[in-house]
Design a binder for these strands. Structure first.
Lengths: 254, 254
DNA sequence: CGACTACTTGAAATATTTCAAAGTGAGTGG
DNA sequence: CCACTCACTTTGAAATATTTCAAGTAGTCG
């Protein structure tokens, strides 16, 4: 609808928002750092001009230098297999950190691309490591952050190997919903920044299947979909679908 | 064949092998620690009596206290979804470290079970963190280790969403082969410590499919399989199969 | 406005699952 | 030491969800 919905457009000045002024600071790296040490973190963070839609933040096989926190917009990460197949490995919303896959070999194993205009904070890893030895809570936060990445990958594994198309899509929508909610945004209505293709790729489904599932979920009155705009009409049922308790709707209230 | 192949049997004394005496030290945590500091690492490691086949090292929802390094044997990790479905998330060979998934919520999200008698080093995480702030190379190693876990999960993702049954199994066999090789063991002949069921579960396939694929690969002379014993007869072809370059065998020598 | 890409829908093709049953192996107890 | 049981594995045939192929529609951008 609103052709002017550049909510995520970055005003030029905002390049230099410091962590202490950033609205994401309660869910981003700063959570791990005390007020007085925030400057130290702030000092190593580089904020360059926003990425435009389709631009790469880094590419697989690039040398690993930094990790990145999303300030606005959405980033998708993906790997390309030897035979050229693309696999989307994640979608990163504001406040989320990406690039940690590069640590183990000093080379990025994913590429990262902006799905829409995106402002990014770059955090040189060597400096972050140094800072982490000084600020144990930052070190700890980092361990947690990587652990969380592992967990979310593993949840996705479960999704891909066990679930039907409906379940996978329900799970993705619920994940996005929860993450929006964490950011103080609507948990029920939001815009999918990625294409159907990306969704299918991420979930291991053909585009056509994604499309069909959206249609089915609309017929069931679980969703209202209008292009990229999604509204969750029946959150409970969507949960049920996501964990295979659908149809009969055992409705184990909890 | 050899009914006495208890290569992995632990002699009672070996409970207390220190890191400096452990044959795995070039591939395990000690790689990150200088000779003189090895004692400090050694001091926080607990070595209890070996797990017997089927015993749990920890269970999902257990409080997270420690991470674990496998000294001998094989550990499988798995999660259980709300609806009770099990998903195998990994197999851990000697020298590999597991349990890091628990860091982010202070609760293990996986269960870990011995597939055969297994000796384990337990490393209390709080102490490891403290030590990591003192030994930057240890901190770095840890970041690497977790990063590697992320990468391997992501490779598995690719496997599950893109690949055929043949490709998945080829990839698993190649992974095991490479890891054996890294430990100085045969890359071509080894024993699968896990059941066909575990393989199928891990790869997102029905047991029957796993069985059928093994049979097919044998007919193609790629493998010789005798129960849990596997021999890779045609490594090159197995690689080709694993990345979808099979049949026509484009044989892009490299 | 036209060209392009993204999305949707239908019908046929297919790989894998599911169901069913038989074969194999290891471990236990007589 | 053999027989019995139980769990694991293999194999076949039918069922099924998803993919693939094909075509049409909608939305976007120059």
């Amino acid at each position: 609808m609103s052709s002017n919905d550049n909510a995520s457009r970055i005003r030029s000045r905002s390049f230099n928002v410091s962590c202490s002024d950033c609205s994401l600071n309660p869910i981003c790296l700063p959570v791990a750092v005390k007020e007085q040490q925030l400057n130290e973190l702030d000092d190593i963070i580089k904020r360059s001009k926003p990425l435009k839609k389709g631009e790469h933040l880094f590419r697989a096989s690039d040398g690993f230098e930094s990790i990145y926190a999303v300030r606005s917009g959405t980033i998708k990460t993906y790997t390309v297999s030897e035979d050229g197949e693309e696999q989307v490995t994640g979608f990163y919303l504001p406040g989320e950190v990406l690039g940690v896959d590069g640590i183990c070999n000093n080379i990025h194993s994913n590429s990262a691309k902006a799905l829409e205009t995106a402002a990014i904070c770059e955090i040189p890893f060597t400096q972050l490591e140094a800072l982490s030895t000084e600020i144990p809570s930052l070190q700890h936060h980092f361990f947690k952050l990587m652990s969380k990445e592992i967990q979310s990958d593993q949840q996705l594994l479960m999704l891909l190997s066990k679930k039907t198309a409906e379940e996978r899509i329900a799970a993705l929508l619920l994940s996005l919903s929860a993450r929006h909610s964490l950011r103080g945004l609507s948990a029920t209505g939001f815009r999918l920044p990625m294409s159907r293709n990306d969704i299918g790729n991420f979930l291991g489904l053909a585009v056509e299947t994604v499309s069909r599932v959206f249609t089915r979920l609309q017929k069931q009155r679980v969703l209202a979909v209008d292009g990229k705009e999604v509204e969750i009409l029946d959150h409970k049922l969507l949960c049920a679908i996501s964990n295979g308790t659908a149809d009969g709707m055992v409705s184990n209230s909890a």
